[in-house]
Design a protein around this nucleic acid. Structure first.
Lengths: 150, 150, 150, 150
DNA sequence: TTTT
DNA sequence: TTTT
């Protein structure tokens, strides 16, 4: 009845943009979120949390997010499952984001991106996935006949 | 750097209380959280989200929560991994709760529980897992030599 | 850049529904949220937090919420100010809700309401106040020439 | 029963550190949080939200936060009231923070601060205000006989 | 001005 | 494996 997640962390890699067969944009990336304590060896660990964005938000994330960037994500936890090729049920937990905030200005020295932008706060539209029939379906996303989505 | 989850849903089963070898209480249960939309078949789906509580909070949850109860959970997403007996790395995503709220008064007609309590809002202490060396370690929990924790 | 509030509490009174001059529904109510500790006299205090909902969500809240009902609210903090009739600037802090969840089934014995409903989870549409030019303006709401909004 | 706020914004001024008569540190600052939309004149407005921190967290905030810094705050909404010198009841709404994250590295060119630190993520201890008898009292804070706290 |  |  209520499912809300807020994360701040850094991208472990550049985001990956794909399209569903019906042409809807999906971007996936992983956020490394430091734990608020150190483990028994005195080391600070992190949780690596997979994030999924859809539609316009997916395009913007693909365009502007890059590996290492400090990023805030708002969304909900989604658990989907599928049967792998050994006939085992596999559970996948992801955060479906509906709001993403870039917390670092986009640097000029970014080799993986295109241009240089001065601005710090890009107009990331909120995703309104309620109108998206695709997002309403929790089943594994088929981007092609023999491709698993992520 | 920031990792916050708030959920409201219903327990799919009675909670399970176990103890670590050093005697720390751990309670696990699953929350069914309805999605805020219907799928392409017009059905309302749910996410089944595993919750873990520690120490005093674990004891209280085991004592008072029951299958079907509407419950609010606050915590953080934790992703841990282990190698299963086929040598495959398995990822487990759980919400480590530090605050749990019972949203239904405990009913008199509860056959699975013991007595009848009138009260609606039990004194669930916040878990302070920062002092718990065990909780700081993301590795799979060994409750005994050949038992996986959950 | 990010502003998110989640509350669970009880309505101190029945909600109040009004309309702006352009016909947009606005519902206001106050949520009593118990503090998670007792004060120095050993008493449990509460915060009384004003909630505002708009449009379709306002209509549904006015129809189904009643004094005393346990309710979850998601939204953002808004601070608006106006000059009172003594020329002093007054600051008003409210939670603008975009998601409201009824946590109690609507009782048959409700004298203040109309009918009896069996259902527990009403289809409260999320408010999409971004399309609402009125909601975008933080100024005091004029419901009529000489009326303050709430 | 549940009261959770998460904000990301910038400090409008340097934080102010004070002490209660019993020697407990209190730091106050205001966070400017941009609204996620533009108003009817096409301008982006902000909410100015007062934040209060206690004890160790108060000391750290006073030491490291400065005007303009991008900052994440986790806490709860608190509404307190007092009677002003005209005999009117005044309501004050603040966010009592228990977790604060600095989202910008501390710059070397900071004239208002002391030294230069390279680090990005300071060890801000979570405040455990439940053990703080002072924090449990919602009444106006007396720092001296004739001083109002903030 | 406040809820259970 | 799932709750109302």
């Amino acid at each position: 009845m209520l499912n809300r997640v807020i994360l701040i962390g850094r991208l472990t890699r550049d985001p990956e943009l794909r399209y569903t067969p019906t042409g809807i944009a999906v971007t996936q990336f992983t956020l490394a979120v430091d734990r608020p304590f150190t483990n028994s060896q005195g080391e600070r660990e992190a949780d690596f949390i997979p994030i999924v964005t859809w539609r316009q938000l997916a395009e913007t994330c693909a365009n502007y997010l890059r590996k290492g960037r400090l990023t805030a994500v708002e969304g909900r936890i989604q658990v989907r499952s599928y049967d792998n090729n050994e006939g085992r049920r596999v559970y996948v937990t992801e955060v479906i984001a509906d709001n993403v905030r870039f917390l670092e200005s986009i640097r000029n020295d970014d080799s993986s991106g295109g241009g240089s932008y001065g601005n710090r706060d890009l107009p990331l539209n909120r995703d309104d996935s309620k109108q998206d029939p695709f997002a309403n379906d929790g089943s594994p996303i088929d981007l092609s006949d023999d491709d698993l989505p992520f």
